[in-house]
Design a protein around this nucleic acid. Structure first.
Lengths: 335, 335
DNA sequence: TTGTACGCGTTATCAT
DNA sequence: ATGATAACGCGTACAA
């Protein structure tokens, strides 16, 4: 069933059918009605490939993300897809893992697929070595690139992020204000966002003239789901004699491990140990006591990112950086 | 940069370029080398839309799912996407929500986009009213439809599922064998899968000649993330005088709520209250004590589903129903 | 207001 | 082993 079939049955030319299809003006109401009837009756829908070929677009945006099953990234993908679809775009999902070569290959695949734009979800897409980000700059020559929680100065690259530095800084300050100065900072990512968070923690110390101690900045190398591993990791630190009365984590899952650690060692939360997580995820209410956590307004971020994306594709002038601030949601793991 | 440009620069016809591109035999090694050089040098990649138009396929599969941010569905989407890509297919994600009209609209969108197949993730896609599933049967006339955790008898519809009946039955039996007969069954979905689970619970009772009591089959109507809500829900039941020494839940999140309820009421788990969840998700290790939970081997299911999908698209004969069985993973919320 | 004819960039058939 | 050419189905400039 093609536009030719419709045009024949309706007794008009394909141009007219096309005009009706695309809501063009300048078509007599009566003709329009006739065409619509035939279309309806035949259950005709235009061939998307042919349209794509002619218009050089299939209204499709690629979503690149390391692991869409991760609690946080899954939410991001969900919000992004919803907003894209509401804006008339399809979303091609592509999970890359955390390996650079695989990220490059995935991006390339999407570009070959002729997506209109690519959204890279998560700060893990920006590498330390500036040269390692060249593949993104190259891609930006072809289509606009949207970055969620990452920063890259490059024309045609648009960044939407949360002020993780400030959020983490504020979280640390809130503990320091309670006279807790032996805060263990626990993190599992050294991505752009991860670094910002760490700096936030550090700045809270220096601004309050408290000396920083590397021992209190611990990197957990396990998987993103290994809550038990975190618990054991903390036990190990304790066994080695490290004393801390608060755990500030770069991700809720790490904080959940801290809660578990506290219980295992009969430490009362928050009296003996205060714990703050990050992302304000489902895990917060799963913990007992419930986790205080930084909410970085992911839904807002995603909504704004897609606005920027669609705006750019519509040739509107869009801001290259958009920054939102987060907020500490207090529950019962802090005083 | 088109195939014409390449053909000119290489001094051959477009047919030859196309042959080289598609690895066709019958092309002189020397010619092939020359063409590949030019392609490489120009950084040429074939136009996917034009290929799509010609071949009537862009090697794309649609993934329909109610909510890709749900812990379980997110994992499913992740596994499916990975397997599809490994098989050379792109994945268009489309979150539908739980509303029927929206599901219909989404499916139709994917079909108009000319995907090669549609994968429907989650048993919520099968409605009680047989007529309400007509839109799926209709879609199956156009492309093969893959169902994860759902069952629909229809040509060109392929179902891959876990034996939720048996898994839940076994879980209930394991409690009954510990002399616990006042098991509260807690569920939040009446989907195909949800019904199978409930039947599994019920059959464990009847097979052991224990009378069933409707009061012990409680439907929780809150959101899929409202752990607190579950906790309050159980408190309410207790307040009304319902006594139970085990909670068997259709989803980990409900079980997490039960753990919380136990703590709030100073009930020891598993001594005073045994708890079993379902899905064996991240929440299991987040709880304290850790949740025993049914693992329905989602990764295997997804891998098999995609095999069936790609096989079907390759015109191989594939089984219309594939059923795996689950397994109770014992942790510390049961004896 | 409507119709004709061309271009989009491939793949595939049929000659050579 | 290679080349010419016809589909594929649409949008649209231009003509009427």
């Amino acid at each position: 069933m093609t536009i030719y079939d419709i045009s024949k049955q309706a007794g008009v030319s394909i141009a007219t059918v096309s005009r009706v299809l695309n809501g063009s003006a300048n078509v007599k109401p009566k003709t329009k009605k006739k065409v619509l009837e035939v279309i309806e009756q035949c259950g005709y829908t235009p061939n998307a490939f042919a349209r794509g070929l002619g218009l050089n677009s299939m209204n499709t945006v690629g979503i690149l993300c390391a692991d869409s099953s991760d609690l946080y990234l899954a939410k991001a993908v969900y919000y992004i897809e919803k907003n894209l679809r509401a804006g008339g775009y399809h979303a091609v999902l592509c999970c890359t893992g955390y390996d650079l070569e695989s990220k490059k290959a995935s991006l390339s695949l999407l570009l070959n697929q002729r997506v209109d734009s690519v959204i890279m979800v998560g700060s893990n897409f920006i590498e330390d070595e500036s040269g390692d980000n060249q593949y993104i700059r190259d891609a930006a020559e072809q289509v606009p690139i949207m970055l969620l929680n990452a920063d890259l100065d490059c024309s045609n690259v648009y960044c939407t992020m949360c002020d993780d530095f400030k959020s983490m800084h504020d979280a640390a300050v809130s503990l320091i204000n309670q006279e807790i100065t032996d805060i263990l900072y626990l993190y599992n990512s050294t991505s752009f966002s991860g670094k910002k968070k760490l700096l936030g923690y550090q700045s809270a110390y220096t601004m309050n003239n408290i000396p920083l101690n590397k021992q209190y900045q611990q990197f957990f190398a396990g998987t993103h789901e290994d809550i038990d591993g975190v618990c054991h990791f903390l036990n190990e630190l304790r066994r080695k004699g490290l004393e801390f009365h608060a755990v500030l984590a770069s991700e809720d899952m790490l904080a959940a491990g801290a809660i578990k650690y506290a219980r295992m060692n009969n430490l009362s939360v928050p009296d003996d140990l205060s714990v703050i997580g990050y992302n304000n995820s489902l895990l917060c209410t799963c913990c007992e006591p419930e986790l205080s956590s930084v909410d970085n307004h992911l839904e807002t971020l995603c909504s704004q990112l897609v606005k920027t994306c669609i705006g750019t594709l519509s040739n509107e002038e869009m801001p290259q950086k958009t920054i939102f601030s987060g907020e500490l949601v207090k529950r019962f793991s802090t005083k």
